[in-house]
Design a protein around this nucleic acid. Sequence first.
DNA 1: TGCTATAAGTGCGGTCCGTG
DNA 2: CACGGACCGCACTTATAGCA
Length: 324
Amino acid sequence: MVVTRSFFAQFAHNPVNDQDANITSTPAGHSPRWNRVTPTSTPEKKRKSSGSSDESSTSTPKKKSSPKKKRAKSGPTPSTSSFDAVTAANFTKSNQVIPPVHTLLLGTHPSVQSLKENRYYGHPMNAFWWIAGDCLGFRRAEGLKTNGEPYGFASHLRYNESQIVPYEQQLEKLCFSGFALWDIVKECQRPGSLDSDITQEVPNDIRGFCKLHPNIKRIVFSNGGTACSFFKKHFKEWLDSGELVPSQHKASQDAFKKWTKNMKPKTKRPGGRDKHQIECIVALAVSPAAAKYTYDEKRDFWEEHVYQPGLKDLEAAHIVANDG
DNA sequence: TGCTATAAGTGCGGTCCGTG
DNA sequence: CACGGACCGCACTTATAGCA
């Protein structure tokens, strides 16, 4: 099993983590901006896409501009490794009772920005921590762009600046609510942050993790169908075993459509899952790229399908513990 | 300094093509 | 013919660079 301590060891040496709650208001001149420092170039196919989009999307004549300075090109695509799984058990200094893990939240693989900052969902516009905060009672940061203006979603947040907590506390709050964080892809080669550019991927032992945490009731794919496709690719046998069942929500049903279709009748339970099965939820993607969903839509989905059921499980676990 | 064009990020969905 | 994978364009927002 993966030992998660190294993930936390990173905090001690990373000055970025001292300003977790203020990542969007870094002083000018510090230049942490991901666009500028990203060491990789955009894949050719995407650049073409952008160009053709511009040509067709506007009817106003464009001002001819001089050639832009090319951003730094990288050498051969480096191999990157995901973070270790993180659960409440990682917080060894805490005196709190460690709750059983009921929900495993899976991303695909950390983005360039997340790797750089040694944190899950590190991109300031990624909705993950904002939604988690709204559902669990904290606020990630001020929610300001580098020019000091608020992000569009900031006016939809439930908590004000007084509720801002640093990253470690956000992580602790999430984990002590019974949620665990991990990625599907352990190692891969990827030029940039596009999931669709991932090659040579090595999956994490997610099945082993679930065996180690038998109270897990649901696995949530936080980046929509793309993350789910990697899971289907590498865990076919597990899917066929009948231990997993897709959520009743449409997106989950669609993502697992082909697999559901081929399920053996005895493992197929259209009315829901039995108590030993793990529900697979394909969530509305928290990535800033999933712009077709509003922040409110994403939060409502996550609250209804992930956080509320998870907190109920947590409550039930406390009741059982107190009775016993 | 402010405006504008372009690059970048990244998931979704459609199309095409190869394979069984 | 069905299926899966690769490819491509779209969606929307922010950051950056260059010009007036």
